[in-house]
Amino acid sequence: VRLSLDGPVMTLAATDRYRYAVRTLEWKPGAGAEAADADVVVPARRLAEIARSLAGAGPARIALDSGSLGFESGGMRTTTRLLDGRLPRHDKLFALGEHALAVTGRVPLTEAVKRVAVVAEGDSPVRLAFSPGGLHLRAGYEDDVASQRLPASLTGADALTVAFNPGYLLDALTSLDSPEVRFHLLGPGQRALLTDGPDPAHRHLLMSVKPLV
């Protein structure tokens, strides 16, 4: 996980080469801090363990030196080592340029993906057909097909169909906590950006696949 500090903003970013998630948080540099800027890479599993152990303990203090990152909260202290290397920068990947925007309810879509994905064999994609009048969700082929329609809006295109790996799509949807999810779409087989609002704190980039039918 890439952890960067830029003034009062902390950015966490992670990728597995198939998707890229970025979360921004507010933080306050402590009194006497030498610098409020940093850019380091830490082990993802260890960082998740630390987050779970400090959950509910109140505000956390962060200390950084040349080889480790330390956390303190509620009387507990823990550290993790820093990793060499750098993650690919997300700035250019997330800059989509001219694109279509589709908006739908996050929870209804999450539940619908779970239902229709039952008939998706292996890595078979779930197809999302957006139009100004709604969203048609579909998975499966030939006689084994599941589908559902949901309310949605679409701007920037008359109609647009994209498809995603259902597991990756569910991971993206459940990582958001907003009532609606916004799909920033370039087209089939191209990258798509999922956000939680017009000024998002969380962004999730997925690569769509071209539907077979």
Rank of each mutant, 00 (worst) to 15 (best):
A38P: 08
A38K: 11
A38N: 09
A38L: 04
A38Q: 11
A38Y: 07
A38G: 11
A38W: 05
D39C: 10
D39N: 12
V40S: 14
V40G: 14
V41M: 09
V41L: 15
V42P: 06
P43N: 06
A44V: 10
A44H: 07
A44C: 10
A44Q: 12
A44D: 12
R45D: 14
R45W: 07
R45Y: 07
R46Q: 15
R46M: 15
L47Q: 03
L47S: 09
A48F: 11
A48C: 05
E49K: 02
E49C: 04
I50E: 06
I50Y: 08
I50K: 04
A51F: 04
A51I: 05
A51R: 12
A51T: 08
A51Y: 02
A51L: 10
R52F: 00
R52V: 09
R52L: 05
R52P: 00
R52C: 01
S53G: 00
S53D: 06
S53C: 03
S53Q: 07
L54I: 08
A55N: 12
A55K: 14
A55F: 05
G56S: 01
A57W: 01
A57L: 11
A57T: 09
A57C: 04
G58F: 02
P59V: 12
A60F: 07
A60K: 03
A60V: 15
A60P: 01
R61Y: 08
R61G: 15
R61P: 07
I62T: 13
A63G: 15
A63T: 14
L64W: 03
L64K: 05
D65C: 03
S66F: 07
S66P: 03
S66L: 09
G67W: 09
G67N: 15
S68F: 09
S68K: 15
L69E: 02
L69N: 02
L69M: 14
